[in-house]
Every structure is written in C-alpha cells, then in structure tokens.
Design a protein around this nucleic acid. Structure first.
Length: 564
RNA sequence: CGGGGCGUGGCGCAGUUUGGUAGCGCGUCUGAUUUGGGAUCAGAAGGUCGCAAGUUCGAAUCCUGUCGCCCCGACCA
C-alpha cells in the first residue's frame, strides 16, 4: 500500500474524548473514528487489525471443530421472552419496534437464537456434539460507554456455543475451547493469564476468563506465583489463618459522639481497623440483611449475591437502616440486631472487637462472636487482597490488573430448558442439550493489545496483528533514485507476500517517522541518500531503540527472519 | 439513574462574568525557501457559535426548552 493513497488520518493532538491510551492512539493513528457514544467506525488500518484477530480466532475455532455461521442481529422479542431475558436484560438491551408495533432486540448475545436454531434441526444424540460459532457485531446499551473500544455499545464478538449430550461431553467441549483460547492468545502474542471467574448473570458453574495483562486494566486478578492459582478478585478465595485465642473481655458500651467511620474510631479511640467490625445493610430483593466484615476489609457483593441467590442486591438507604437498627450508618453493629447477619469467615477469628451499638453515637467494645451475637451464616464474603493466603498452596497471593478479552462458561441446560430444546438420547428419551458458551471480544482485544504494547511515540503492534508488517520510508521522494530503489524494494516484499506500506508522500523525514511510529508498524526500512550510496538501508524494529544498517539484498531475508 | 462539566472551522482551545464586526494554535490549500524525528516565510480557504423558541435596536454571550457529548459513582463482556 502506498501511504500517499492510504486513508489514515493521523492526528497530532489528542482528541479530548479519549481518556485511556488505547483510545487515544486508535484515534490519533487513524484506526477508528467515533460515530456516536460507544459506537465506532473502523478505518482501513483498524479494520485490518480486526480482520487479523478474527482470522486467528477463526483458524483456532475451526481447528477445534467449530463451524462458523452468521446469525441475525435483529431478533424478535418472543425469542427473548421465552428464555425470560426480555425482562432480565432490562435497559442493557437495545430494543426497537417495527411498523407493525412488534418488538425486537439488537442482540447482545445469541444463546436464545442458536438454541432455537439447533433445536429445530438437531433431533438425535447421533448429531452431537455440535460446536457453532459466529463473529459479528453485538449490542449492549451500556449505562456508560467509555474507554473507546474497551466498553462500546456496539462491539465485535466471537461467540461459540457447544451442544452436548451430557456433562461429560460438555467437559470435553469446554476443554477444547480452553485449549483453543490459550492458543489464540499465544498466537496473538499477548501476555495473558487464565483466571477462574464468577459466571455471573449468564449462569452455569465452571467459568474461566482470559485476561490480557495491562496496568490500567479494569479487572483485578489474584494470583499465586507458586502454584498457578489465578482468579478474578470477584471470585478469588483465601484461607483463614488460625489466630491466637484471647480471653473474652466484658462487653462495654462507649460514647462515641460524631464518630461515623472505621477510620474515626482508629484515630480517636486508638482501636486499629482489624479490631473493628464493619456492618453493612443490604436490600436483597425485599429482605433487609446485615453483613459484617473486619473493619479494613471490602465486601465482595458478588459473593454475597451468589450466596443469597437474589435478583437484586443494593445497599439499604438511610431510612431503611434507621427503621431496622434504630441508628444510622456510623453506629451499626450486629449485637442485638433483629436481622439476619451474614458474617465473613474472618470475623470468627476476631476477639474483643469494636462495632456500632445500633444507637447513634455509641459503640460497643470487647464484642465477641457467639457470646454477644450469633450470625445467621458464616461464609467467605470479602475481596482478597495482596498478601492473603493462596487457597491452593498456602503461599501468598498477589494482585495484578488485566483486561478481560475472553470468557468461557458452562451453561449446562439453563437455556435448553427454558427454550425447550431437546434431542432424543440412545434410549429414545427427550433430553435438553447440555450447552457451553465461549466468547472473545474481538474489538476489545484490539484495544487490549495496545494497552499492553505502546510507548510515548505510539502503538507497537504485535507482529501477528499488525495492520502491515513493514513500512518502507524513502527519506526524500524528490530524490528519484531513492524513490525508485524504495519502490523496487516494496515490489520485492509484496511479491514475497510481505504486507508493506511505502511512504511515498512528499513529506519531511520527521513527519514520516512520527507517523510510522504512531501507527505502530513493526518493521521500518529507511532509505537515506548517504547509506544508499553503499546500497545499504536502515532497519529498525518498532519495539527496539537502535537501528541496523543492512545491505539492500539482505532485506527480504532479514524481514522474513523476523516475521516467521 | 445520582453527581459534576462541556457543545465556537477537521483537531485542541479562548471569547460568555459586563450583549456591540467571531479569534488563537495545529491541520488544509497556493507559492517560495527547506529536507534524517511532526520546518520557515508569505498568502488563502474554511464557522447558521449543538438545536428551537424568547428578551433586545442588536445575542456565541441573557432567559426558557431541547438534543448531544465527556467525567465520577452504581452496573457490566
């Protein structure tokens, strides 16, 4: 491709809408343009990257036995009513109405449709297993789209759905996908980690997320260097260390006027946070419940929600709190509380701690579990932190950040049951398909690749997904001999199947270098007047600082050596 | 949905408090001089100031409404 003909409008300044690096660079380098909130056009360079990612994903899906299909994005309301998700999805789902006043969704995912589709034509266990996938736009009316491609309202996803006879079959399909996903991220040349995940609203039990590691990733990953344990902090567990027992002191109520936070009590009563208890009030559907944690811990709402198996979970407002406890936020505690109290496991290892007294401006000290109150249930409810104990091996956990680019679930029969999708097994019995679902955010992967690979000059594309592999820069196109030499080199690379750009624009060298760095082409070949007299060119790898002078005739071989 | 902010040429912004000929930098076009890390000089094009309805002799500026966008939070692949 000739740069003079390529549509890649680069920007010198950072558009004000872009907050994170991938968004800024994608805009500046002319890869994408915003159409409306959370919706983007992919320009030629951006779309090339998308296609490369798709191609790698496609090859690995096919290798694992997947079959690609294309399904509608516009889907009838009835489909979603059948599974119950017309309600469940709420405002997250784009909805539209046709001229006959019929309701439709812009599909956020395709479980309903694929299940219906397979059910219509697959009737026998002999036709299973079946692995069907699609790559296309999906829609989610995010409350707040942000971070460019990272959290769009329209995004490109690959989703594969597996249909099996039973749990054993699902295990096999699941592990095929697990392996395929690892291959994909290895081939994309991204640093990633596979983590145990909460399966969330989609349902099912086993679930893994594939995280591209990046310092400003949205997800936190707890991992163990020692044993490979890795889990999303939403899911990560830890082990309770045995504590020395203490003699139980007498429960005492103290006056704490104006003290509302854990930190207040730390500051003014010299009671460390780990000797206090934090009491949180939640509305679980219609029921008010209390949750207690060590004072310096954070509640993991997902763990709580999963345990309570409720539809809605949110923090109770002040009126509710006062009505149920007789005091406001700063003075809550489990003692004498007439509500179900769910206690984090760690609380059982605490003695003589402080907490609110359910009377404004009063706290208890020397509170003890069992003697002063009895929790409804003791369970793991907190977020793990750096330094917690690995649940697998007992070493210490660390926390790193990542971007979720892939997620695999075992769905079981959740959708096949609600959609009444069955096959006949060997004994002639109708059975629901046992399903799995396996997603990769294609457009998000593009953004994640940048978050992991950039410098102050721009993007540094991993070779497998770079829009072009080589950029040839004749320093001065008015120098006819130089331009001719550059063009001949360009032809040679093209013939050899190397994807190259030649920057034949009549621009100053500095401009060309800046643009080449910005768009992140991995290999730059520069032809300058001086070295060309020796028939030499300059080769620079985008991810390295120094340049190498090589003979013109070596270029193809050297480039191939880097690429393959 | 709660809180905060912004809509002025392609991009980044000033001008709005106190109404009076719409500005700056970058980019774009023309010419000259330049030519290895976003050149210099000279000239030029390009804006219904988000939209609508008001107040006024006069509105980017004041009032009302409306749309869009951004940030923080709750939510999420």
């Amino acid at each position: 491709m000739k740069a003079s003909e390529l549509f890649y409008p680069t920007l010198r300044e950072v558009p004000s809408e872009a907050e994170i690096i991938s968004h800024q660079l994608l805009l500046r380098a002319g890869f994408i343009r915003r159409t409306t909130a959370g919706v983007y056009s992919y320009l030629p360079l951006g779309y090339r990257v998308i296609r490369k990612i798709m191609q790698i994903v496609r090859e690995e899906m096919d290798r694992a036995g997947g079959q690609e299909v294309l399904m509608p994005i516009i889907q009838p309301k009835e489909l979603w009513e059948k599974s119950g998700r017309w309600e469940v999805y709420g405002d997250e789902m784009f909805r539209l109405i046709d001229r006959h006043n019929r309701g439709f969704s812009l599909a956020p995912t395709h479980e309903e449709l694929i299940t219906t589709l397979v059910d219509a034509d697959v009737h026998s266990y002999r036709d299973l297993p079946l692995l069907i996938y699609q790559m296309q736009n999906k829609y989610r009316d995010e409350v707040r789209p942000r971070f460019g491609l990272m959290r769009g309202r329209e995004f490109i996803m690959k989703d594969l759905y597996s249909f099996d006879i039973d749990e054993n079959g699902l295990d096999i399909s699941y592990h095929k996908m697990y392996d395929a996903y690892k291959r994909i991220y290895e081939r994309l040349n991204l640093k990633f980690r596979v983590v145990e995940a909460d399966s969330g609203a989609i349902g099912g039990n086993e679930s893994h997320e594939f995280m591209v590691l990046a310092d400003n990733g949205e997800s936190e990953i707890a991992y163990c260097e020692n044993c490979n344990y890795a889990a999303n902090v939403e899911k990560a567990e830890t082990i309770l260390l045995e504590q020395d027992k203490e003699d139980l002191l007498e429960l005492t109520k103290i006056h704490t006027p104006g003290e509302r936070t854990i930190q207040d009590i730390v500051d003014n009563f010299n009671i460390p946070a780990f000797k206090q208890i934090k009491t949180l009030m939640y509305m679980a559907d219609e029921e008010v419940v209390a949750v207690i944690l060590r004072g310096d811990r954070e509640l993991n709402e997902i763990k709580l929600k999963n345990f309570l198996a409720c539809q809605d979970l949110y923090m109770a407002d002040e009126n509710t709190v006062r009505a149920n406890c007789g005091a406001s936020f700063g003075s809550l505690g489990p003692v004498g509380l007439n509500l179900k109290v769910y206690a984090d496991t760690e609380v059982t290892a605490m003695y003589n701690f402080a907490c609110g007294a359910n009377v404004d401006d009063y706290h208890y000290i020397n509170v003890n579990v069992g003697r002063d109150f009895v929790p409804e249930k003791i369970l793991d409810l907190r977020n793990v932190v750096k330094g917690d104990i690995c649940p697998e091996c007992g070493e210490l956990l660390d926390i790193i950040r990542g971007i979720e680019v892939g997620h695999i679930f075992k769905l079981g029969t959740k959708y096949s049951e609600s959609m009444e999708a069955t096959f006949l097994d060997a004994s002639g019995q109708a059975k629901p398909f046992v399903m799995g679902c396996y997603g990769i955010g294609i457009s998000r992967t593009m953004a994640a690749a940048i978050e992991q690979n950039y410098d102050e000059n721009g993007i540094i594309w991993p070779l497998p997904i770079a829009p072009y592999q080589v950029i040839i820069v004749p320093v001065n196109v008015k120098n006819a001999e130089l331009l001719k030499a550059a063009l001949s080199l360009y032809e040679e690379l093209n013939q050899a199947g190397i994807e190259a750009i030649i920057d034949d624009r009549d621009e100053r060298a500095g401009v060309k270098f800046k643009d080449a760095d910005l768009i992140g082409i991995p290999i730059r070949i520069t032809l300058g007047p001086k070295s060309w007299q020796e028939k030499q060119v300059e080769m620079k790898k985008r991810w390295e600082k120094d340049v190498e002078f090589i003979n013109r005739d070596e270029v193809l071989a050297k480039v191939k050596a880097i690429i393959y």
